[in-house]
């Protein structure tokens, strides 16, 4: 049984059909890539799964739960976590507090008011910062990090919510080749910890990290399956050729 099961998902903005009867399956622990030409509906599909957009029709199941109409906080509590395309770290908070904020999200209001969990979560914050090579910058303002470091911080924050499915929207956008390579190295150890659904333009990066792919074109799924199979698909080649 799939961890994520998307069936017949559609999204319209007025007359514009951004997503049309899209199906998607992601198994537990799988690294799944979502690719397609510009405007193919990748980000819309990811946003519908995360709850940033409500689909016009179709259904989304995470494990046994139907999350189609749940607002973002409830989806996060069900195990979905999202790293936004545009970095949205909290620039005026220090790097440490950014991660702590994500980690403590499950605490009750009363526990937060009494600051009960800060000491308990301290080790986990430090471990995440160390894992994403930010331990030396824990007390720097997040807004003072480089673009690449902000992307890593965002991934650390998304991971701090202990998701079963982590959604990454263009995690290497704007990164230098070295940073892109380092990002791949940072994501690889997540295998077995949670499933990953990655939207990315960099097909080389997707090829290195993902087990399977789904290709979208004009809001529709044109191919899905193991990496090699999808790469060999003529429909996929055609979709990319059509967009020059």
């Amino acid at each position: 049984m799939s961890l994520l099961e998307v069936r017949g998902l559609g999204k319209s903005y007025g007359a514009l059909r951004a997503l049309d009867a899209a199906d998607l399956d992601v198994a537990a622990g799988e690294f799944h890539g979502l690719i397609g030409p510009n405007g193919s509906g990748k980000s819309t599909l990811l946003k519908c799964i995360a709850g940033a957009e409500m689909p016009t029709e179709g259904s989304i199941r995470l494990g046994t739960a139907d999350v189609t109409r749940l607002p973002p906080p409830e989806r996060a509590r069900a195990g979905l976590s999202l790293k936004f395309q545009i970095t949205s770290v909290l620039p005026q908070l220090c790097v440490y507090d950014n991660v702590l904020l994500a980690l403590q999200a499950g605490d009750s209001l009363f526990d937060l008011l009494l600051s009960r969990s800060r000491r308990r979560l301290d080790e986990q914050v430090k471990a995440l910062l160390s894992r994403f090579r930010l331990d030396g910058r824990a007390q720097d303002l997040a807004g003072h990090l480089s673009h690449g470091e902000q992307q890593w911080l965002e991934i650390a924050m998304a991971l701090a919510c202990r998701p079963t499915l982590l959604l990454l929207d263009e995690p290497t956008a704007g990164m230098s080749p070295q940073e892109r390579r380092a990002t791949g190295e940072l994501l690889e150890p997540l295998r077995g910890e949670c499933a990953l659904l990655i939207v990315e333009h960099d097909l080389g990066f997707i090829g290195e990290i993902c087990d399977s792919l789904t290709v979208l074109d004009q809001g529709q799924v044109v191919a899905t399956g193991p990496l090699a199979e999808v790469q060999a698909s003529e429909r996929v080649a055609q979709a990319y050729l059509n967009h020059g």
């Binding site: 973002p72 906080p73 976590s81 908070l93 904020l101 999200a105 009960r116 800060r118």
Partner: peptide
Amino acid sequence: QLGLVLAGMRQQEGRIAFFG
């Protein structure tokens, strides 16, 4: 720590809803 959530909310309200 609740104040931290408020500080986060003031800076990126849309973001922290996705933490839960």
